[in-house]
């Protein structure tokens, strides 16, 4: 019963913390689009959190390079569990056109567990909303948190 309440509440109130792990900045701008009147994800209880300690949903954009990897890991460790991680954009999923780069540290899911993949370069805001909805569905299906 308590677990159910906890899960239901979490699925309805994901606070976003967004890490820019060396993106080209285009994905980040599309993320900010989500909060504009046109898309308004606050309808689903999503809010931008100021600090990783307040967050439930980690959005990582960009190809994770060797320098920024340490920071991504640290931010992930600082998010109170249970939390959801989303890889936003082709860069975070696979490296996109930077796969051959000398400082590419591998796709994001090599380093931290990723729950949803939102593809695109950059993904459209609609695609991101779909991704978040998938994350919420996934949360609801989990047995325990």
């Amino acid at each position: 019963m308590l677990k159910k309440l906890k899960k239901a509440a979490l699925a309805r109130s994901l606070w976003i913390y967004h890490v820019a792990a060396s993106p080209c900045n285009n994905c980040d701008i599309e993320i900010l689009d989500l909060l504009t009147p046109r898309f308004d994800v606050e309808r689903f209880g999503l809010l931008l959190a100021a600090s990783p300690r307040h967050a439930d949903l980690l959005l990582v954009t960009g190809m994770v390079n060797k320098k920024v990897l340490d920071r991504v890991l640290r931010v992930y460790a600082q998010i109170p569990k249970p939390c959801v991680v989303a890889a936003v954009g082709s860069c975070a999923i696979s490296g996109d056109l930077f796969v051959d780069s000398y400082n590419f540290a591998g796709p994001l899911d090599k380093h931290i567990p990723v729950d949803v993949y939102i593809g695109g370069c950059p993904p459209k805001p609609e695609a991101m909303i779909l991704g978040v909805m998938r994350a919420i569905e996934k949360l609801k299906k989990l047995k325990d948190l």
Binding site: A8, A9, R12, S13, R53
Partner: peptide, 16 residues
């Protein structure tokens, strides 16, 4: 009910 969801969600999370 959004503020209540937020509140109960926070109750269920870890504290550092």
């Amino acid at each position: 009910l959004q503020p209540f969801y937020d509140f109960f969600k926070l109750l269920g999370k870890d504290t550092f």
